[in-house]
């Protein structure tokens, strides 16, 4: 028996929108402490890791650990039928080949049930080792999205370099080059507007902008984004989900020329 009631149903809608274009199918792993998902994109270049802790749910019941394979495109279609203010409940029974999404309007005058077919997914689970990162940049998520979008109109890859001067995003393409430098800026009215650079050692790495732009679909989940880099490790682009968990995107670097 599985029953999870999320008052802020829009969160689940936003989570799905942030990952559905990167990953087609994924196993949702439910346990008493919450649910998680880990999946690579079809080219095995990027990996998404999602965690939603049970504390964030108004009601959370999971009698035994269970894994449900879902097509994220189909799940997104169903969750789009929930209103932004709706309460969403996920229900499942042991051994069933379906999962039910229940949407309740805030005033309880409309209640909808959507039953979705589950699927068997053979997915590899990867161990993600704890790492000490050379540089961690925390910045407004909207600013990061803007930079990735702007640079993608010039080139295909971005070089992200962190030095004590700041963080530099660079690209080059047929029409020319672009460099955007952000300096640490903590003298802002709201903490979420700050750019904070923690650097142990300078680092410079190259990534595909197509993936970075895909990650920025998670922007509605959080005002800030954290970018963690170490040479010879995938970059981690993390969007925290208030009080509940996170969506983390890992992207393998391009080889340096």
């Amino acid at each position: 028996m599985l029953e999870l009631r999320l008052v802020q149903g829009s969160l689940l809608k936003k989570v799905l929108e942030s990952i559905k274009d990167l990953v087609n199918d994924a196993n949702f792993d439910f346990s008493s402490s919450g649910f998680s998902l880990q999946s690579m994109d079809s080219s095995h270049v990027a990996l998404v890791a999602l965690l939603l802790k049970s504390e964030g749910f108004e009601h959370y019941r999971c009698d035994r650990n269970t894994s449900m394979g879902m097509n994220l495109g189909n799940m997104s279609k169903m969750l789009k039928c929930a209103g932004n203010d709706d309460i969403i409940t996920i229900k499942g029974d042991d051994g069933s080949d379906t999962v039910t999404f229940m949407f309740e309007s805030p005033t309880q005058d409309k209640i909808a049930d959507f039953e979705m077919k589950l699927m068997d997914i053979d997915s590899e689970h990867l161990g993600i080792p704890e790492a000490e990162y050379h540089a961690i940049v925390k910045m407004p998520s909207a600013e990061f999205a803007r930079i990735c979008k702007d640079l993608a109109s010039i080139g295909d890859t971005v070089v992200i370099s962190v030095t004590k001067e700041g963080v530099k995003f660079s690209t080059r393409g047929d029409i020319g080059t672009a460099n955007i430098v952000l300096r640490q800026n903590t003298t802002v009215d709201k903490p979420e507007d700050a750019t904070v650079i923690e650097m142990n050692e300078p680092v410079s790495m190259t990534f595909a902008l197509r993936y970075m732009n895909s990650f920025t679909k998670a922007t509605p989940l959080s005002n800030t984004v954290t970018i963690s880099m170490s040479p010879d490790l995938p970059v981690v682009v993390e969007y925290k989900i208030a009080e509940m968990g996170y969506v983390r995107f890992y992207l393998a670097p391009k080889m340096e020329e």
């Binding site: 270049v45 689970h125 161990g127 670097p253 080889m255």
Partner: peptide
């Protein structure tokens, strides 16, 4: 053009 590496080159199966 910089060749793209894969995630599986960094993280191993559990």
């Amino acid at each position: 053009v910089n060749p793209q590496r894969q995630i599986t080159a960094f993280f191993s199966k559990t």
